[in-house]
Simulated assay, not measured.
Amino acid sequence: MFPRPRYVFLDDRGMSTVEYALGLLSAAVLAMILFGIVKSGTVAEGLTGLIERAINVAG
């Protein structure tokens, strides 16, 4: 009637949906954090300077 206790932990049906949801949530949070960092003034100025130097070297 009930599964043996050692088989309860081996049965992972239904776990993939939760794992995908947590992975998607983690990726969204990480993207928001990185977006906030890149939009900060210091990082934006550094990236702009890097791009300008690359254009000046190539051109």
Rank of each mutant, 00 (worst) to 15 (best):
M1V: 09
M1Q: 07
M1R: 02
M1I: 06
F2A: 15
F2S: 10
F2L: 14
P3S: 13
P3Q: 12
P3T: 13
P5A: 11
P5V: 11
P5K: 11
R6T: 01
R6N: 01
R6F: 04
R6D: 13
R6H: 07
V8I: 08
V8A: 02
F9D: 08
L10Q: 08
L10C: 02
L10P: 01
D12L: 14
D12S: 12
G14R: 03
S16W: 07
T17K: 10
V18F: 10
V18G: 10
V18W: 09
E19M: 00
E19S: 11
Y20R: 13
Y20E: 11
A21H: 06
A21G: 08
L22A: 12
L22H: 03
G23V: 02
A27V: 14
A27I: 03
A28D: 06
A28Q: 02
V29C: 10
V29M: 13
L30N: 05
A31P: 00
A31G: 08
A31Y: 04
M32I: 14
I33D: 07
I33P: 00
I33Q: 11
L34E: 11
L34D: 05
F35G: 02
G36H: 00
I37R: 10
I37L: 14
I37V: 15
I37N: 06
V38E: 03
V38D: 06
V38P: 03
K39G: 05
K39T: 11
K39I: 11
S40Y: 04
S40T: 14
S40C: 14
G41C: 10
G41H: 10
G41Y: 12
T42V: 15
V43Q: 05
E45F: 13
E45M: 07
E45G: 10
G46P: 02
L47H: 05
L47N: 08
L47P: 04
G49V: 01
G49N: 12
I51C: 00
I51G: 05
E52F: 04
E52V: 06
E52G: 03
E52I: 01
R53P: 00
R53N: 04
R53Q: 03
A54H: 00
A54I: 01
I55S: 02
I55K: 08
N56M: 02
V57L: 13
V57H: 02
G59P: 01
G59Y: 06
